[in-house]
Design a protein around this nucleic acid. Structure first.
Lengths: 115, 115
DNA sequence: TCTATATATTAAGATATCATAATATGTTAT
DNA sequence: ATAACATATTATGATATCTTAATATATAGA
């Protein structure tokens, strides 16, 4: 079980912060983000995601594994399919909030040409 | 000026999604996340951040540049210091929301051992 | 101007991530 | 059991990111 004591606005030694950094890392890849966006529309099988995203099966499976580790998605077996869904409704809120922030700061955002 | 038409729950070709992915990338590094958390407590100079985080000056400057590109922080010169601050109050909400999601899914979160 | 201090930038090696391809596992139906 | 399909895993090389060290720029004060 992970230590989840929260240190809201105090920087810590980096241990707990690392968990949140990894959590955000989950959404830091276009393919993963598109998977999450697709799943926000409802449950999907891996092959459906492959077709929708135009990505390879391996790519989708691997990114789904990552999203699962990070707690964004959950899966269940349905016959020969595996259906994935968003594990927490607040993920939608998180994405909407990010969109609003990006939209309102558009003129300042170029995003990390360097580093 | 960046194209910011929003395609809320439709996966796109990856172009717009890429912007959001890069935005989240801003918070996907422990050092950057700690910088953001520190700045949520108020404006700080680079050297203050260096001391608080125990990171090198180069590291902090580089990560601040990244956060600036991503739209998280803004800076102003104050004498020989450069003071950084969070550019949008909703960044706090974003982090709080992430904490809540992580906390409530703790048992599922290991975070990307692979990939 | 010269010096000290603060910050930014750049370069280079180490590490992490990603895409691709190949292979393995699992499920269903014959 | 075998074949066909769906998904997961692993390995490899390419690319991106991070850390460290070195250097450059900027500001303030003597």
């Amino acid at each position: 079980m992970v230590d989840l004591e929260l240190h809201v606005s105090l920087p810590d030694t980096g241990v707990q912060t690392g968990i949140y950094a990894k959590f955000f890392h989950g959404l830091s890849n276009p393919t993963r983000l598109r998977i999450v966006e697709t799943l926000l529309d409802g449950e999907r099988s891996v092959s459906q995601l492959v077709q929708t995203l135009g990505a390879t099966q391996s790519q989708v499976s691997n990114q789904l594994a990552c999203l699962k580790w990070c707690g964004y998605v959950t899966s269940r077996q349905d016959g020969k399919y595996v259906l994935y869904r968003i594990s927490d409704p607040r993920v939608r809120t998180l994405l909407q909030l990010a969109r609003e922030i990006v939209a309102d700061n558009a003129e300042h955002i170029q995003c990390c040409t360097r580093m």
